[in-house]
Amino acid sequence: MTEFAINATGLRKQFGEKTAVANLTLQVKRGEIFGFLGPNGAGKTTSIKMLLGLTSPTAGSATLLGRPLGDRTARAKIGFLPEHFRFHEWLTAAEFLDFHGRLYQMPTVERRQIIPELLALVGLQERADTPLRAFSKGMLQRIGLAQALLNDPELIFLDEPTSGLDPLGRRLVRDIINQLRQRGTAVFLNSHLLSEVEQTCDRVTFIRQGDVLDTVSLHDTIAAVPVIVRVGQPTPQLLAELAAFGEGVRLGVGDGRIHLTLPHEAALPQLASWLVAQGHTLYELTPQSLTLEERFLQIVGDQSEG
């Protein structure tokens, strides 16, 4: 068994002159909840389509669960909730799940057992015999989610899973993702709702114009910490000395505070004791934890439209 649920190297998609995805290189570990972020038109959808074998890449390669792109044995262990979840609306909810279960080649007995369970999980147990055409957008999203869970996947792609959902529905998706985490399912989550990604994901990747800009871990203590330091005398000599502790040392214009980025959280107490030991009068030492939105804007830049 390979370590990676997804291992993509240099995936590229060209539509004539237009490059939809320039160079997608990323690894998602098994059991990891992975966020996929980027502005509109960044190539997220094309990237997902390439990974799922819907669109063939112009260049590059990737494996899913250790198998090459488009492999059918891998697909048997993958779940997918498409962004534009339009299903055969003339089927009832239970028939719809049964049909998709048959496509996974699940035996009848298994389907009979799991379908009521899944309907209950997404809160649609009362709607088993309702045709999908009578479903609201949120209900369709729920049934789509149940569909993606049918085969007890090892890897699941959720493309904007909460876009049509009310707060309750969003909470449901969050709970389901947490359950998937406990079951060791890798989740590839594409969402615009950064607060949601922040609450659920282990790592996120930022892409723009089909290029991976950065991948950051969300609950890593070794992540860089920007801090603000206020001392009695922010001398040029102090600024020079601080370069030993972190990067980007500068004196804030107008506020007299020193800004720098420490490589990890553990450097905070070290810096504090050093400053005191050097005889500086320390008034303030504030770690700045960036929200995901701030990081998004910092990494992706806010010049993108939409």
């Binding site: 044995t73 697909r75 962004e83 534009h84 979840f85 299903f87 055969h88 496509l103 569909q147």
Partner: peptide, 14 residues
Amino acid sequence: DSHTIEALVTKPVR
């Protein structure tokens, strides 16, 4: 056009 196909061909089918 309706994207219905996406949930079908990503199943283990040819």
